[in-house]
Design a binder for these strands. Structure first.
Length: 265
DNA sequence: CATTACCTGCAA
DNA sequence: TTGCAGGTAATG
């Protein structure tokens, strides 16, 4: 979750101070990244699905995906990178951006306008966008013979939900995770729509969920892990009915739900 | 569809 | 030692 930006930091005349895990650079080649990035100016920070998008000048966009354990940290000139910092960008004002990533799953791309359009087009609707309505959710789920939990994790169907918030949203909507997406009634879609937006809004309010690695760009933990209703709460009592929360595996991912509030398929 | 790979670290 | 972890791409 993107909780804050690098204010207006300047990458002008900056350099790549360290890059010791080249596999994190998906495109262009590492040589091209070294050629193109220095001298660029950061103009804005945005997000699409789980990609952090830093708008640069000359039509370039620096895209960063934190995957499981990545952190993007803004540090002062005196800070020492920890052992898992694999990319350091030195800024013109002396600060540095550390890409810290224990598991090395995180990725970086430098995209031109066409690359950005292609990335954007590969994702489903943004749940917090005003254009996202129950009707839109119904359309993207229509005819999908996939379990609803799997559909919610598929970024091509709907963008931005991860394993935590998929379970949380289904609990709030009282929908069993194994239901087929195509089987949801209008009413259930309406409930799911509200639940998704509610769960994300609360998570943002609580500055994200820190299980192990998540930090905002100042290195601060989130608080939303203290507000989980079902995720990581196997055997805890459901807040609605007291039934023990169950854990099952759906699409190879841990999935938590209340067997009473979210009736069987 | 399901399974495996990618990585490292931590808890059971 | 095994299993599991907030994600996704690449395989059968």
């Amino acid at each position: 979750m993107l909780t804050n930006i690098f204010e207006l930091v300047y990458l002008r005349k900056a350099r790549i101070e360290k890059l010791d895990w080249e596999r994190m650079v998906e495109t262009p080649s590492v040589a091209d990244l070294y050629a193109l990035l220095p001298g660029r100016t950061m103009q804005a920070v945005g997000r699409r699905a789980k990609w952090i998008l830093v708008t640069l000048d000359a039509g370039w966009t620096l895209a960063v995906h934190l995957r499981m354990s990545g952190q993007l940290l803004v540090q002062g000139p005196e800070a020492t990178p920890r052992s898992h910092v694999h990319l350091v960008l030195a800024l013109a004002d002396g600060r540095r951006i550390f890409f810290d990533d224990e598991r090395k799953f995180g990725r970086v791309r430098l995209l031109d306008a066409a690359g950005l359009r292609a990335l954007d087009a590969s994702f489903g609707p943004e749940p917090l966008d005003p254009c996202f309505t129950p009707g839109v959710l119904g359309q993207v789920l229509a005819g999908r013979r996939v379990k609803i939990k799997v559909a919610l994790l598929d970024q091509r169907i709907i963008a931005g939900l991860g394993n935590i918030y998929a379970s949380e949203a289904l609990w709030l909507a009282k929908i069993h995770p194994l239901r087929l997406a195509s089987s949801l009634t209008q009413e259930e879609i309406a409930r799911l729509y509200s639940a998704i937006r509610q769960v994300l809004a609360v998570a943002i309010e609580n500055q994200g969920s820190t299980l192990r690695n998540y930090r905002n760009s100042y290195g601060e933990s989130g608080q939303n892990q203290d507000h989980f209703q079902v995720y990581d709460r196997r055997d805890a009592p459901c807040a609605n009915c007291g039934t023990a929360v169950m854990r099952i595996v759906v699409g190879q991912r841990s999935t938590y739900f209340c067997p009473t509030c979210q009736p069987e398929v």
